[in-house]
Design a protein around this nucleic acid. Structure first.
Lengths: 212, 212, 212, 212
DNA sequence: AATGAATGAGGCTTCATTCAT
DNA sequence: CATGAATGAAGCCTCATTCAT
C-alpha cells in the first residue's frame, strides 16, 4: 500500500539535486517555524526561505504537515543519537550512577536549549496528525528503553518494573528541561537545575532500590 | 498585568442574560475544542454549539483568542482552587508529608484525567498570545507558591531555595500527570503512577532536607 | 445520511435575501459558463458576475461542481415542464399524432436553440460527477415516460415495448436537435429540420404499429 | 484547413524511434483519459504511462491539447475507415437496403462499444479547441457523404436533398448508439437496439422515397 | 535527444469578522 | 441586543510548461 500521504515525500529523491532541495526545505522550515510560529508559517514562506519555488516544495512534500513530520524526524533522530552515544560511553567508560544521571540530564537540557523556540513550536504549537504523535511516542519509547538499560546496568536487576522507572525518569526530566527553557524559575541557572534534577532522580532510584 | 484588548470581553455583562450567554459560549468552546481540536474549530462552530448567533458571540468576545483566554481562566481557577483547598485541609487536618504528596499528586492526575482531550488541546494545540502565556505562568506560580507553603509546613524552614524545590515538584508532577494521560506506559494503572510519583517526590524532599 | 456534498447547498436558504443570492449565483453561472466555457470559468468569475463575494458563494455552494448541478437542475426542470405541458395540451385538445410529434420536436429544438452555447457547455464540457449523471438520466427518463404516455394515447396499447419506442424517439430527437444547434447541415433551416424529424418518427411509429 | 500550431507535433518524426515514442504517447493518453477522465489527466500521467519523460513528451507535442487532437485523429481515421469499408463491400456485394442499414448501424454501435469510456471522455469531457471541433465535423461530414452515396445507390436519385437525409441518419444513429452505450434502456440488448434503429431508418427512407 | 527537477500563475476554498436588518 | 447574510484577505495546492544537465 502507498505510504501515508502525510508522512512521506511524494517521490524518492534519487538525484543529488533533489536531496539538496529536500534538505533546504526542511532546514528552511525549521527557521521559519522558529521565527513565526507554526500557524503563521505558510508553505510559501518556507519555499521562499529555502530559495525554491512553491512547486518544488510540493514535488517533495504532499502538504504542510508532512514538512513538519520530516523536521520532527530529524529532531527525533538527533535526540535518540544523543542518548545512544551517552549509553555507549557510559558502558565503555563505566560511569558511576551519578555521572550517568548528570550526563543524561545535561544532555536533555542541552537538547532543549539548543533551539528553544523551535522546540517550543514543535512541541506546543504544531498540530498532531497521527504520524506526528506516533513519531513522538516512538522517540520517547526509544529513549526510555535506553534509560532502562542504563538503570539495569547500575542497579542490577533487583529493581522491579524497570520500565516504569525509566518512563518516570524520562518524562520527569523531559518535562523539567522543557519547562526550564520555556519559563525558568527566577534566579536559577542551568547548573543548578541539572544538580537538582539529578538529585531528584537519584533519590528516586535509591528509594526504589531499597523499598520495592 | 494591564488588561489587553485581547483578554477581556467588550462589555461587562451586567445583566443576567448576558452572563448566561458568555458562559454558554465558553462552555461551548470547551466542548468544540475538545471534539475538533483547536485548529479545526471555527467561531461559527462555537456560536452554533452555544445556541447563539455569530453576531452575539462577537458582542461579548472581540475575537477568537479572547474566548480561549476566558476558557483558560476558568480552567486555571479550577486548578488553583483545587490546590488551595488541598493546602487548607492539609493545614487544618495536619496531614503527614506522605499524605500531602499523595493528595497533591492524585489531585493533579485527576485534574488532567477529567478532560484529557481538552487539556491536550489547551496545552498543546492552542496558540500562545501573550495573554495566554501570562495566564499560564500565573497559574503555575500560584500553584508553586502553594506547594512552597506546604513544604515549608512539613520540612520547616531548613531547606534552602524552597522556591526551586516547589518549582521542580510542580512541574515534574504536572509533566508526568499530563504524559500519563496522553501516552501511559504499558500495564500501568493510575494508582501505580501516583505511588511512584509520590516516591519520587518524597525521595527528593528527604534528600534535600538532609544534604543541602 | 447527509446528502451528497456535491449536490446540495450548505444551508437551507430560509430568508429572502438568501434565495436572491442563490438565484443570482446560479444565473451568473449560466452566463459565465456560456461566455467562457466550463473549464475556464472560476468560482471568482461567477461570484463577481453575481455581484456577490466569493465567501457568499461558498456559503451556499460547497464547491464548483455543486453550482453546475444546481444549474442543471434548473434546466432539467424547464425541460420536463415543457414536455409535461405539451402532454397536457395534447390530451385536452386531442391532437393528431402528427401534431403531437410536430409540437414535441419543435419544443425540443426550441429548447436547445434557446441557449445553444450554454447547452453545449452543459452537455459537452462540464464534468460528470455522479450527481450530474444521475440528474441527466432522471430527466431523460421523465421525458421518455411522458412520450411513452403520448404514444399510448395515439396508437393504443397495441405497440409492444412502448418503453423502447419512447427511448428511441426521445434520444433520436434529442441528438438531432442538439447536433442541429451545434453543427447544422448546410442550407437547412429549422422548419426543414422539424419536418424531417417528424417524418422520421412518424415513419417509425407507423411501421412499429403495423409489424411488431 | 491550415495546420494550426496546436494540431501538429513540433518536429516531424522522421526516425523510427521518434514514431514509436509518439505512438506510445498517444496510446498512453487514450488509456489514461479512459481511466481518469480528461480533467484529471495530467501531462505527467501520460508521460509516465508512456514510459517517457515529461521532457520527451514536450519534444513531440507542443501542449496538452495537441495530444488530444492526435488521439482524435486516430479515432476519426478508424471511424472513417470502418464506414468506407462498409460502403465498398455494400457496392461490391450488392447488399439490400436493409442489409446496408443493418451493417451500418451495427458498425457504429460496435465502434462506440469498443471503448465506451474513452468515447465518453473524448465526446463529452474534452475541451474543444478549434482544431478539435474542425476534426470532428470533418469526420461527420466524411461519414455523411459516404452514407449519402449508399442511399443514392439504393434509392436512386429520386430522393430530394439526400444530404439532409444522410445527415439525419448519421446523427440519429450516432446519438442512439452513444446513448445506448452510456445509459441503455432497461432490458434491451444490443440486437434489439440494432433492429429498432434499422426499422427507424428504413421507415424514414421509405417515406422519403414515396412522398417528397 | 532524453531526462526530470524546477517553475509559478492561478485555482479552489476557509473562516474571522462586519454590518444591515 | 440579536440575527445571520455577507465580506474578502489569505492559504493550500495543482499542473502545464521550461530548462539545466
Amino acid at each position: 500500500m502507498a505510504p501515508s500521504s502525510v508522512a512521506f515525500p511524494r517521490r524518492k529523491p534519487t538525484q543529488e539535486r533533489s536531496r539538496a532541495t529536500v534538505d533546504a526545505i526542511v532546514e528552511a522550515a525549521a527557521r521559519v517555524f522558529e521565527a513565526r510560529g507554526y500557524a503563521h508559517t505558510t508553505t510559501n514562506h518556507i519555499a521562499e526561505r529555502a530559495g525554491v519555488s512553491i512547486g518544488s516544495l510540493y514535488q517533495y512534500f504532499p502538504n504542510k504537515d508532512s514538512i513538519l513530520v520530516a523536521l520532527l524526524e530529524h529532531h527525533a533522530d538527533d535526540g535518540a543519537r544523543l542518548i545512544a552515544e551517552l549509553a555507549a560511553r557510559a558502558e565503555v567508560e563505566d560511569w558511576s550512577l551519578r555521572a550517568v544521571l548528570e550526563h543524561f540530564v545535561e544532555a536533555l537540557v542541552e537538547y532543549h536549549l539548543a533551539a528553544p523556540r523551535l522546540q517550543y513550536v514543535l512541541l506546543n504549537e504544531a498540530p498532531r496528525p497521527p504520524a506526528v504523535v506516533a513519531l513522538r511516542h516512538q522517540l520517547e519509547d526509544r529513549i526510555a528503553e535506553l534509560v532502562s538499560g542504563l538503570i539495569d546496568l547500575k542497579l542490577g536487576g533487583e529493581a522491579p518494573r524497570p520500565d516504569i522507572v525509566a518512563w518516570l525518569i524520562v518524562h520527569a526530566v523531559e518535562g523539567l528541561a522543557h519547562e526550564f527553557v520555556v519559563h525558568p524559575p527566577r534566579e536559577t541557572n542551568r547548573d543548578t537545575l541539572v544538580r537538582e534534577v539529578v538529585t531528584l532522580i537519584e533519590g528516586y532510584l535509591t528509594r526504589r532500590g531499597e523499598t520495592n
